[in-house]
């Protein structure tokens, strides 16, 4: 009796091991759709799109959450739905494409007549967006990351009236990289995606700058 039991146990153990092996094989070497490789490459121009399954599996990258400004509608949920408070999503300024406008659509409330830095003129609810005179008629805008709550009000204004250089981005020094981002599940425009950890930014118009520039711990984003 114990012999038979032991044998059955061994059999089941083998079965479970085989099942786990099959499962891992299936998720590692799954077929690709041929359009985009999930490791951050666009397959259309890639010559090895058919044969890249093995290498891709081996370099299976960590992923992090990022939001795509081409989909975002600045609903404001980024500020409220992150598990962190304040949110790990913050406004980030692509200086390279800023117009340095005097009448900044991201800084001033629509309809502001006299362009002063008075608080009631500012779109930003926390005065996180700073305006500094450079030379006539140009002004520089920087974000005080400590103050920014990621509400996207300035982003909306800048995108509507200006160049769209103010953009919302997940700041990866603050983000906990939740297994399922709690903003992603509530984002109305499905703007959140998992991106390869070595290309963590989806910012537009950065010019020469490449993602991965070391962050200053806290402080002003400039």
């Amino acid at each position: 009796m114990p012999g038979r039991r032991e044998f059955l146990n061994t059999l089941m153990r083998g079965g479970i091991l085989a099942a786990l092996g099959l499962l891992s094989g299936a998720v590692i070497f799954r077929s690709r759709d041929g359009k985009s490789c999930s490791y951050g490459f666009d397959c259309s121009g890639c010559s090895r799109s058919k044969s890249c399954m093995l290498p891709a599996a081996l370099e299976a990258r960590q992923t992090v959450w990022q939001l795509d400004m081409t989909k975002c509608i600045q609903c404001g949920r980024c500020a409220t739905n992150c598990v962190m408070s304040p949110s790990a999503v913050k406004c980030t300024h692509a200086f390279a494409m800023c117009g340095y406008c005097d009448l900044c659509g991201g800084y001033f409330k629509p309809g502001t007549k006299i362009l002063t830095t008075a608080a009631e003129n500012q779109l930003c609810p926390t005065n996180a967006l700073k305006r500094k005179f450079i030379e006539d008629p140009f002004f520089e805008y920087t974000i005080d990351e400590e103050l920014c709550i990621g509400c996207g009000k300035c982003v909306k204004g800048c995108g509507a009236f200006g160049n769209g250089s103010l953009q919302l981005q997940v700041r990866h020094d603050r983000c906990k990289n939740c297994n399922e981002c709690s903003i992603a599940r509530n984002c109305p425009s499905q703007a959140f995606t998992r991106v390869p950890a070595n290309k963590p930014s989806l910012m537009r118009g950065l010019g020469k700058e490449r993602p991965g520039t070391a962050a200053k711990k806290g402080g002003v984003d400039a």
Binding site: A96, Q167, A214
Partner: peptide
């Protein structure tokens, strides 16, 4: 959707202003 569109050209500064660089923190 507010796509980044270059509506205003990038200014040419006369003073020697250096444009700050955008800081992008790297993940863990």
């Amino acid at each position: 959707v507010t796509l980044p569109i270059q509506r205003f050209p990038k200014p040419e500064f006369e003073t020697n202003y250096t444009q700050p660089s955008t800081q992008i923190p790297v993940p863990r």
